[in-house]
Amino acid sequence: MEIVASGAARRYPRPMGKASFFEAVRPVDLTLRGGEMTVLTGRSGSGKTTLLTMLAGLLKPSAGTVSLDGLDIYAMPDAELSRLRARRFAVVPQVAAPIMSLNVMENILFPAALAEKAPPVRRAEALMQSLDILSLRGAMPAELSGGELRRMAIVRALAAEPDFVFADEPTADLDDENTAVVFSLLREAAERGAAVLTVTHESDAYVYAHHVWQMSAGMLTQD
């Protein structure tokens, strides 16, 4: 069970010096394996989010491929790729993206419903407990703080036990205590067998990682 990016690159049409393109991600080779946690760091604007969204099936590379167990995911029709994302992928986006009309618990159970799995209520409650948002289960997203929304997004990603977890700066608005909890939860997911990719600026994350990659100006280097 692995996701492989080979020569995956992304350019945006923006005049940069002589070129009319700006290369946000230069051709990258990267493999995310089940059971492993990969941490990706780098300066702002270096292309981390761009790479993560390409790996998560949300952004088609302008060159190269991303494949899941040998199948090019961007060659799939939208319905199939969407189903794949619903059943096996989970993303914690860099910005909060709750479903505004659903309360916290419904948001958290929504991916399982979409994947037609039984609602993982117990697991969701345990995760909420460990991130200290259990009391918010009936609250609406509009009532939550940035950090609470972030923690909700993490629980939502982990509750349905996905095969692939993509977390983009999951600890950006969190205190140290919650930050540590989040990294250990992500590590747990990897230990359970998932492939986990975490983008973060926190060097604390390295101790939880199997691999640490560095991004700068769209290029990937291993630490």
């Binding site: 969407s82 189903r83 994302r85 619903a86 986006p93």
Partner: peptide
């Protein structure tokens, strides 16, 4: 738009 993008991230197809 944001809300719809969020739904896409969760795995809704364009049709859905």
């Amino acid at each position: 738009r944001r809300e719809f993008a969020a739904l896409r991230v969760l795995g809704l197809s364009r049709w859905q």
